[in-house]
Design a protein around this nucleic acid. Structure first.
Length: 511
RNA sequence: GCUCCGGUGGUGUAGCCCGGUCAAGCAUAGGGGCCUCUCGAGCCCCAGACCCGGGUUCAAAUCCCGGCCGGAGCACCA
């Protein structure tokens, strides 16, 4: 037997596996056309990458099952909510969903209905009254500290067994303003010895003496999260309520509320949270950096707020694609910005024009070149379109980084212009001579900018929330024609977005 | 501490519900080659994983038990 034949027997050929498309796991109990999901943000800040998962997971499922998707503002804590955040959320979410339609074909790329929870507070008061009348809720005037302790210890307080009439009266007084904030709250009557502490007579309404961004001082009693989500989800027809998994212990509370009220039940689905490697996602962490001026604002390209990411040049399509690939997993994921960058690059690379920009410029004089000459550079490697750069004097800028390590006799090519040889290198100037043979293959090719007509520009390089690098230099004349918000690739530098025109400032998205 | 949830290559995930088709798919990062008047891009190739221990079974990543590790929650916030 030949060695080849033997080898074939010893190592059977590897079986072919067809590459599989990413498919999301089925949603429990979901029927096509009947699924209703929602995203329920609190308008208390600018949405971040973390919110994007909360938006996209239910949205994607709603569209997969050809169902409805709702946007609901959970604005029941006026102390932290502000009007500008409603708009910020609408704006950022819109961009993401429109991108989801383009990138993933999930249509329509928009929520089907918007609901503002605070408009339903009167309805919630009615339901609260119903609970009181059923004997399932009572007004407690114990101080917070005592409640916390007794809940932990599983002790019942004296208010728990007040007659219904007393509770009704106290509830009235809460609404009318006889109590100050913290002096009274409505609690659900469950079981003070329940193993899940969140289940031990949870508070469902409390007093907040702060003006509401929409309603001003119309209300002073607000529902607590567990009560408002359950009621709203049930009443608005939600079939699958998604939330990140820290709400898991609340599932039981919410289910209890629904049952005691006799409302329609629905599925509750938890998903894992994401953290971006090395970058804080929480408002708690970002706010001081914004307020202290270390960050430029909530749209600083160094932080993962959605507007920061957009400003950096991360396309909404890339974010959407990223979360689609990530899936609805329940595991907390620590994601690397590299992954989002990789997706962004794949989208940008085939369509974005190429430009030359020279950071840390050094003058280079070229002997033997007749000027003026026109250099021709390809707009994009896949395109036949060329741009011409007029070089009026035989002097160009090249980058200090490229000059380092150069020695006399070295040969390299100035892209689209000429192949040159080094005569000598001085700190401020390099002396070059035109090569006798204008080789293109096999020589290093670098970017350059003409001395005359070169455009001063800078590139902001985000490093961390606390730091950045600013590259200053000259670019080719065409840079001056770019519009704010446009994306490009700076040759050998990376992808950039034009942030502002005066002074001409780019932000480096990624390599 | 209590309650709940989870552990698949360096990282992120698919598969687990309904054991075999899983000698485990995809992406990213890593290594090598090719292409290219940029590149950390593209193309081709390589390497890399079922937390541990028992059990059930002809057969276990998948089911059961125990352990270990990790996460979340334990507010009159969401």
């Amino acid at each position: 037997m030949s060695p080849e034949a033997l080898k074939e027997i010893a190592t059977p050929p590897k079986r072919e596996r067809k590459p599989q498309e990413r498919v999301w796991p089925p949603l429990e109990g979901a029927e096509e056309g009947k699924v209703v999901t929602r995203v329920a943000p609190e308008p208390n800040g600018y949405p971040t990458l973390g919110h994007a998962k909360g938006l996209l997971v239910p949205f994607i499922y709603a569209r997969i099952y050809k169902g409805k998707f709702l946007l609901r503002f959970e604005d029941t804590n006026p102390r932290v909510e502000r009007l500008e955040f409603y708009d910020a959320i609408r704006e950022e979410f819109s961009r993401l969903l429109e991108a989801a339609e383009r990138e993933l074909g999930l249509s329509p790329g928009k929520w089907d209905e918007e609901i503002i929870e605070s408009y339903h507070i009167p309805k919630m008061y009615e339901l609260a009254e119903k609970l009181i009348k059923q004997g399932d809720a009572y007004v407690c005037t114990c101080p917070a500290e005592k409640v916390r302790q007794w809940r932990r210890e599983g002790r019942e307080c004296e208010h728990r067994n007040q007659p219904v009439e007393v509770n009704l009266e106290l509830w009235e007084r809460m609404l009318e303003g006889d109590f100050r904030e913290g002096e009274a709250h409505l609690r659900l009557k469950t079981d003070m010895r329940h193993p899940n502490i969140t289940m031990r007579d949870p508070g469902i309404f409390r007093i907040v003496e702060a003006p509401h961004p929409i309603h001003g001082d119309r209300f002073r009693v607000y529902p607590v999260y567990d009560f408002s989500v359950s009621v709203m989800d049930s009443l608005t027809g939600v079939t699958h309520a998604f939330r990140s998994k820290e709400f898991e212990p609340h599932v039981e509370v919410q289910r209890t509320i629904i049952r005691k009220l006799g409302l329609r039940e629905y599925h509750m689905v938890q998903f894992g949270r994401i953290t971006v490697e090395g970058i804080p996602l929480s408002k708690r962490y970002i706010r001081p950096l914004v307020e202290s001026g270390i960050l430029e604002g909530w749209d600083d390209p160094r932080i993962p707020t959605l507007r920061g990411l957009f400003r950096r040049g991360i396309l909404p399509e890339a974010i959407v694609r990223f979360f689609y690939e990530l899936g609805p997993s329940k595991v907390d994921a620590t994601v690397n910005m590299d992954m989002i960058a990789a997706i962004n690059r794949k989208i940008l690379d085939p369509k974005v024009p190429r430009y030359m920009f020279v950071p840390d410029p050094v003058r280079a004089v070229i002997d033997g070149m007749d000027t003026p000459v026109e250099a021709r550079v390809q707009v994009h490697p896949d395109s036949e379109e060329y741009r011409t750069i007029v070089v009026e004097e035989p002097v160009v800028y090249i980058s200090k980084g490229d000059v380092e390590g150069l020695k006399a006799g070295d040969e390299f090519r100035l892209r689209g212009l000429a192949t040159v040889r080094v005569r000598n290198v001085n700190p401020d100037e390099v002396s070059l001579i035109l090569s006798e043979e204008q080789k293109i293959k096999g020589v290093k090719i670098i970017q350059w900018a003409p001395l005359k007509g070169g455009v001063p520009a800078r590139v902001f390089v985000p490093l961390s929330p606390y730091s950045y690098e600013m590259l200053g230099g000259y670019g080719e004349p065409a840079l001056a024609e770019m519009k704010e918000g446009e994306m490009a690739q700076m040759l050998r530098l990376g992808f950039v977005r034009l942030d502002k025109r005066k002074p001409l400032t780019f932000i480096l998205s990624h390599r």
